[in-house]
C-alpha cells in the first residue's frame, strides 16, 4: 500500500488516539508538576467599638482571578511526588532510621496512602493472575471432557461473570456476602459466630476482593484454554498412551507444554488488567481496608472534596511507570512473534 493511501486510511484512528491517549499522558505529567493555588490573603483594617486592628482576610476576587489566569496552579516541581501522600521520601527515611526491625518499617510504610494502595494493587495483581490461570485451566480440562450436549450451556453460564459490568458483578457478590445476605448469613451459621462480618476485617476484605477478581477473570482464561485444547494433536496423545503414559502424565507432559504460549498470553494480559483494579473497591465499598492506585486517583478527582489535579497527576505518572514495567515482557513477546513476519 502506498504511504499516502495508508496515511489517509489510518488518519482518523490515529488522530483520536493521539488526542485522547497520548496527549493526556503528557498533560498528566505537566499537571503533576503543579499544585493548587493557595488562597490570596490581604491585610484589612477592622475597626470596631474597641479600636482598630489589622487582620488577614481571604481576598476572594484575587484568588478567583489567579485561578482563572493560571488554572494549572503554581509550579511545584517534584514536590507533589515527594509529599506524604505519594512517595513520602522524608517519612520513609525517618521510619527507616527509627524502626528497630524491618517489620516495623514495613508497617510504618503501610500507613502511608500511596504505599498502602501499592501493597494492595501488587498483592491483588500477583495473586489473582496465577489463580485465574490455574482455575481457567482446570475448568477448560473439565468442560472439554463433558458430553457435547452439555458443553454449550456450560460455556454460556461460564461467560457470565466475565461479560457482566465489573461494578455490577461486584455489587451482586457484595449483596450476597453482606451479613444480612445469603452467603454472609450462611458463613455466620457455619462458623457459629453471629458477629462475623466480611466487611469488618481487612484480611477478609482483601480475600473477598481477590475471590471476586478470580471469579471475574477465570472465564477469560477458560475460553482461551478451551480453544487451545481443541488444537492439541490427537496423534501425540495417542503416541503417549501407547508408550504407557498415565492420564496425569499425558496432561503434564503433552497437553501442558502445548498450552504454554497461551499461559504466557493470559498471564501477561491479566497482569496488565489486574494492575488497574478499581471497580470492585467501589462495588464492595472496601476503601477502608483496601485501596488501589486507580482508586486513589479516582478519589483525588471525584472524591467529593474537590479535585486535586496535581496529586492525581503524580499518582497517575507513578501508575504509568508501573504499567511500563509490566508492559516490557508483553512488548518483547509481540516483537519476537512479529519479527520477520509480514505485518
Amino acid at each position: 500500500m502506498k504511504n499516502r493511501t495508508f496515511f489517509w486510511f489510518i488518519l482518523p484512528s490515529l488522530v483520536t488516539m493521539m488526542l485522547f491517549i497520548a496527549l493526556p499522558i503528557g498533560s498528566v505529567f505537566i499537571q503533576s508538576l503543579h499544585i493548587e493555588h493557595t488562597t490570596v490573603l490581604k491585610e484589612v483594617k477592622n475597626c470596631g467599638p474597641f479600636g482598630c486592628k489589622l487582620e488577614m482576610q481571604v481576598d476572594v476576587d484575587a484568588t478567583s482571578q489567579l485561578k482563572k489566569d493560571r488554572p494549572l496552579g503554581k509550579f511545584n516541581g517534584f514536590g507533589t511526588y515527594k509529599n506524604r501522600n505519594h512517595l513520602a521520601v522524608s517519612e520513609l527515611s525517618t521510619a527507616w532510621t527509627n524502626s528497630p526491625t524491618f517489620g516495623v518499617f514495613l508497617s510504618e510504610a503501610y500507613n502511608l496512602p500511596f504505599y498502602r494502595a501499592l501493597a494492595f494493587t501488587l498483592t491483588y495483581t500477583f495473586l489473582v493472575t496465577p489463580l485465574v490461570v490455574m482455575l481457567g485451566f482446570c475448568i477448560a480440562l473439565a468442560v472439554n471432557s463433558l458430553p457435547k450436549r452439555i458443553k454449550g450451556p456450560t460455556i454460556f453460564v461460564s461467560l457470565l461473570p466475565m461479560i457482566v459490568t465489573p461494578l455490577i458483578g461486584s455489587l451482586i457478590l457484595f449483596w450476597m456476602i453482606d451479613s444480612e445476605g445469603i452467603l454472609g448469613a450462611s458463613l455466620q451459621w457455619i462458623f457459629e459466630d453471629p458477629s462475623l462480618s466480611l466487611k469488618a476485617s481487612p484480611t477478609l476484605t482483601w480475600a473477598m476482593l481477590i475471590v471476586y477478581g478470580v471469579w471475574h477473570s477465570a472465564p477469560f482464561a477458560f475460553i482461551i484454554f478451551y480453544a487451545g485444547l481443541q488444537t492439541v494433536p490427537a496423534e501425540t496423545i495417542e503416541a503417549a498412551m501407547i508408550d504407557g503414559a498415565s492420564r496425569w502424565e499425558r496432561t503434564r507432559y503433552v497437553i501442558l507444554p502445548h498450552l504454554v504460549p497461551l499461559i504466557v498470553f493470559i498471564a501477561l494480559i491479566q497482569l496488565m488488567d489486574n494492575f488497574r483494579v478499581f471497580e470492585p473497591i467501589v462495588g464492595f465499598s472496601a476503601q477502608a481496608s483496601a485501596t488501589s492506585l486507580s482508586w486513589i486517583i479516582f478519589n483525588d478527582l471525584a472524591g467529593g472534596e474537590g479535585s486535586f489535579f496535581g496529586s492525581a497527576g503524580a499518582t497517575s505518572v507513578l501508575t504509568i511507570l508501573g504499567v511500563a514495567v509490566l508492559l516490557i515482557p508483553v512488548l518483547f513477546r509481540t516483537w519476537r512473534d512479529f519479527k520477520g513476519k509480514v505485518v
Binding site: 493526556p24 499522558i25 498528566v28 488497574r276 479535585s307 497527576g313 497517575s316 509490566l326
Partner: peptide, 14 residues
C-alpha cells in the same frame, strides 16, 4: 495497557 483513570485525570482539567 494504560489504566483508564490515568487518562481521565489528564482530561478533566482541559
Amino acid at each position: 495497557a494504560m489504566p483508564h483513570i490515568t487518562l481521565v485525570s489528564g482530561y478533566l482539567l482541559p
